[in-house]
Design a protein around this nucleic acid. Sequence first.
DNA 1: CAGTGAGCGAGCTTCCGCTTGACTT
Length: 946
Amino acid sequence: MAKTLVIVESPAKAKTIEKYLGKDYQVESSIGHIRDLPNSASEVPEQFKQKPWASLGIDVEHDFKPLYVVPSEKKKHVAKLKALVKEAREVVLATDDDREGESIAWHLFQELKPKVPVKRMVFHEITPEAIRNAIQHPRQIDENLVHAQEARRVLDRLYGYEVSPVLWRKVAPKLSAGRVQSVATRLLVERERERMRFRSAEFWSLEGLFRTLKEEGFTAALIEVGGVRLATGKDFDALTGELKPDAKVVLLKQADAEQLLQRLKAAQFTVISTEERPFTQKPYAPFITSSLQQEGSRKLGFNAQRTMRTAQRLYENGYITYMRTDSTTLSKEAMEAARKQVRQMYGDEYLHPTPRTYDKKAKNAQEAHEAIRPAGSRFRTPQEVRGELSDDEFKLYDLIWKRTVASQMADARGRRMQVRLQGLDAIFSASGKTIDFPGFLRAYVEGSDDPEAALEDREVILPPMQKGDSVRVKDMRTREHHTQPPARYTEASLVQALEAAGIGRPSTYASIISTIQDRGYVFKRGTALIPTWTAFATQALLENHFSRLVDYNFTARMEEDLDEIAGGRKEHVPYLQDFYFGDEGLKSQIQTQMDQIDPRAISLIPVPALVGSEIEVRLGKFGAYMKKGEVSATLPNDIAPDELTLQQAEELLSKGGDEGILGQDPVTGQDVVAKAGRYGPYVQMGEKTASLFPTDSLSAMTLERAMQLLTIPRLVGTLDGEEVWAMNGRYGPYLKKGKDNRTLPGHESLFTVTVEQAQALFAAPKSRMGQSAAPLKIFEYPDRTPIQVKVGRFGPYLTDGENNAYLRNGEDAHSLTAEKTRELMAERGKPPKARAGKATKKAAPSKTSKTSKTSGKAPAKAASKAAPKTVAKPAGETQKAEWKDLKSHLNVLSDTERQLIVALREENKKAEDVAPELGLEVKKAKGMMLQISKKLQEAWRKAVSA
DNA sequence: CAGTGAGCGAGCTTCCGCTTGACTT
């Protein structure tokens, strides 16, 4: 008899549920989402590749219809599910009861296309009772909730895939922007900016060791002198380091404190007030993902990833409930188990009289799961499972067990005491705390490893005193204080901040931190997260030009809209339409900002410590550097932005910066200088210059290396009566023999190439990439032309003379088989790009020619398959841009270049006149013009082909 | 703004949120 197929999200969950449901049911898992938007062009099916929206994976012109694909690593699993569906009596989609879960259910339905009845069931705890109850009360898929998820997905894709390219063009390639990561980075950058602006203040205080008449000791601190309160940290302005103007306080400098000490240490002190207030403290809520990560960090020293990896293993092996949750709720069985254990281990007195429940505290919590707790209806104690677990697992289980049990324990009760003493015109204060009944603190103290020790720490016991008692000064000393800048975020506190703002989800907290580290926005020092200069430049761009997108409330507002969509009160397509195509929409924003953003301005990073010093910090192609006039110096990678002081900057620059004298030639005594030139970094000695190799950097340049570089050009020997020179040119290393030349395989071979090797190179015909280069391999087929595997400029590729196909990263040219090669060719083979003005005649009017319907006279070459991305506007017969075309790309130029070209082209001035105005020699200005022309042409060509 | 021998198969990078395995040494 056919079974009912139940599909959940997680395999571990499937196993458990199958036990509860019995033999009429088969339980399988989807293993998360089964379909998604294509990640990159390689995942886009062939028929959509030509669409203008192919890279987005969303047909923005037609109701933002998403293109969903089953990612290749999921195909096998989906096929397996399909097969199971065919044999099933009915299908129950039991994915999580939240937005993403509803979406997974819908995708399963769409993709598996069941012909048998389909139901949707949900549950919030995995107990036999809850599961049986859930399966008896099925419902249908909630389309509105699915739409809300789709809107979320599409919005995130549009944001990420439209804004990231702006960063590539204006800041650096491979950077990224996104609704979550950009705000996470912003938090870090803003905090660092606060630290950079922070001015520390120094203040002093007094601390006294006192004795009662019964010779019982205690300490008290000065709080008031002459009727005025003593200044504390919060009385200072963080930006100036001065007292806030309205602060009515006494500020003690060191001398004041010492003077006061002399005056007070012999004074007579009397108790002027005593106060005692009872207090109670409630236990913390059971763990959710974010609090588990925080406590994992504070108590165990685990980072977010380690905590989650460990929790995952505990979950899979049945020790704890699901670890990605935002709900603090305990199921009934968990509640009972916890309470029973409290009674057994600590006694009735320690049990809270009624079951405790905790309010949800996370913004946008979806509460599809329980809190994180020991699994089952009877909790196994840490001691019981000790032998079965690894060290990490045991520590984390112990933590979870304690927190869960503590959550049902009684309040802690105690008293807080405060005593004030007066001597002359000074008032001292002492506080104490006594815990009368520890309650839950016996099991769990937040942030501490050992509850018993922490309990003792918490008690500061004051001897009994009464108003009017005299006390004696045993000792008194001055104490120095400095105000501290706001602390840097740690993984744990960043997660906490994101969660408080409703940004990110339990399943993503750990990966958010990885992402911003991978992109080079953040690095870690100990547990502190430090934003990089790249993060500063990126944030400046986003804040100045896309402020709405990095607003801390952006996600919260989105969530409100998604709730409206989920509730059926709002439609998702108009919502996206407005976000993308609206007057203030993303698309128009990007179009206008792409022109307005000045990369030079963005690369300049304001540093408060350097204001007025003529030193500027910029983000360049190879990282951050400082510049003062003509001198520049690379900023070390491990220096935090708030640590860069004027003194340190001057020091780095005074070493000559990157452009400095490295030393003298031991033979001639001539200076050897490192410089940054128009064509990149180089070293110079007298008249002789040599470019650095790509592996060198100015900041790491030494005299020895410079001397070695200066041996190039090197006379290799003589061949056929002509000298052979090893040279480093515009296109890289090469050999020169008279008018003949050959490219060398690598820069280092400039030093090592021998006459024999040179002879071999010149004996072979001039290497022309892709034409005469020897193939690595040739595969022959009975039914098609042979395919060659070659190595070119960009790495290995395949060619059969007509079509070429590239290999992806990870595809090894040497291990290709004939069959694999044929497949790759069929899949990716394309005719080589026709060169400008040399269009092939055989380009048949293909489907792509339809795109040029707007221009009736479009030449065949523009529509040829070789240049499928040609825009409707023909680029002109000669492919040459006019000034008006080039003008919009002025942002690729430096300030001087821009001023020069504008003066010449717009104001019709002569180079001879403009050069002096810009402080240039006429010859240099003319040289610059060549560069300018090249840069503009290149930018224009890129824009046209994009 | 050092000073230099050509001609050439590129495509891709990126988002957020669900969830686990995995080429072999």
